[in-house]
Design a protein around this nucleic acid. Structure first.
Lengths: 201, 201
DNA sequence: GGGCCAATGTTGCCAGCGTCTACACTACTC
DNA sequence: GAGTAGTGTAGACGCTGGCAACATTGGCCC
């Protein structure tokens, strides 16, 4: 891991360091200086790669979106039919949130909520959304989901998964009589949504 | 606005100052020192009322939850029947997010996501959720919403409204072929949800 | 090969923040 | 009226993000 004056791929190294810091300290811990320390570089070096801390967090969030999209896409791919693919996509979304709560939270952090300022983040976010939309389009093609405007159906499905994930991650469903097993609960809720999306409603 | 050595009601003053700072600078701007300045008090005074900055933000968030609950409750009250009351509650949720984006964002800010640490915030959050649940229970009593477990239906409805609100606030639906008017879009989406909740589905 | 230049990393500085400690003032109780 | 708990103040510390000046390097052109 020897390096000369120049790092070689500092930008990537900083993002990886940032994700580690994020994982075990939240977004507050993923600062420019902390990441620089972790990458073994001076405190001002990150400024060559990120305009400010918001840009840094945006890059981290974009990377996390890619991971999420990847996980959703592979869940969909390994499903046998379009319906289970649709469900698997939603389950993957919620599972990602439970497995990596801080990565999930950074996706909608106020610091980077203005996606217009961060094209890379906006693109990553739309790619993720696109996985879900594609799952819906497929299900519609097979006639297992009603043929409303796919964008609207995707919005409904995304909202459901997202809302559930937030409540689970923030532990707001504890002791309220919901299913103890998140997997089970997620399945129940998605079933509920699917009910409303079934053809000829 | 003369005051002696003691302020009289500093805690409330700080929260009000915090909300103003929040409105026009986001959570990052709503710091302890900034609020102290705004309240005309020394930088360390807030520590007498808030253990740390997270507790301060939690108090602000609790106040915002109360405002949201109030707005939802009054929207429900001024509706003629249970169905329109249900819809009005959801609309009020989304409208609050659009009218006060930063107040909406603070409700789910990572800094206060662990509601267990902030009982006041958890209570306020549950009161808000309770307004929606009550609207659903009423609609079920009138037979306009299927009689599934109200908590589950509420979770579905909340998720939908929340997901939509987030996407609108973060302007992620721009130029994607959705209805330009948020009000209209919200109504469409809620209609979609209501479709799935109609009795004997 | 040699020289120039843009990119990248370093050092040092500043203001602002949250937090802690010691101190000052006040209000309430006995 | 004295004492004490509650509240506000003053100052310090270490951290942060951000800026400017300087150092080092690699690539490009001649």
């Amino acid at each position: 891991m020897e390096r000369g004056y120049h790092h070689g791929d500092l930008r990537r190294a900083l993002i990886e360091a940032g994700i580690e810091l994020l994982d075990d300290g939240g977004v507050e811990a993923a600062g420019l200086r902390a990441a620089a320390r972790k990458a073994g570089v001076s405190h001002a070096a990150p400024s060559r790669h990120f305009r400010d801390v918001a840009a840094f967090v945006a890059a981290i969030a974009a990377a996390c979106f890619e991971q999420l999209a990847e996980s959703m896409a592979s869940a969909r791919m390994t499903s046998s039919d379009s319906v289970s693919g649709f469900r698997a996509t939603g389950l993957a979304y919620v599972s990602f949130a439970l497995d990596h709560p801080n990565r999930f939270r950074v996706l909608s952090h106020p610091l980077v909520s203005n996606k217009a300022s961060f094209p890379e983040l906006r693109d990553a976010s739309e790619r993720t959304f696109g996985v879900l939309r594609q799952a819906i389009i497929d299900a519609q093609a097979e006639g297992t989901v009603r043929s409303d405007d796919p964008a609207t159906v995707a919005l409904a499905a995304w909202s459901m998964a997202h809302g559930l994930a937030i409540l689970l991650v923030d532990q707001q469903l504890q002791g309220k009589g919901y299913a103890a097993d998140p997997q089970q609960l997620t399945d129940n809720i998605l079933e509920h949504l699917y009910e409303g999306l079934r053809p000829h409603g």
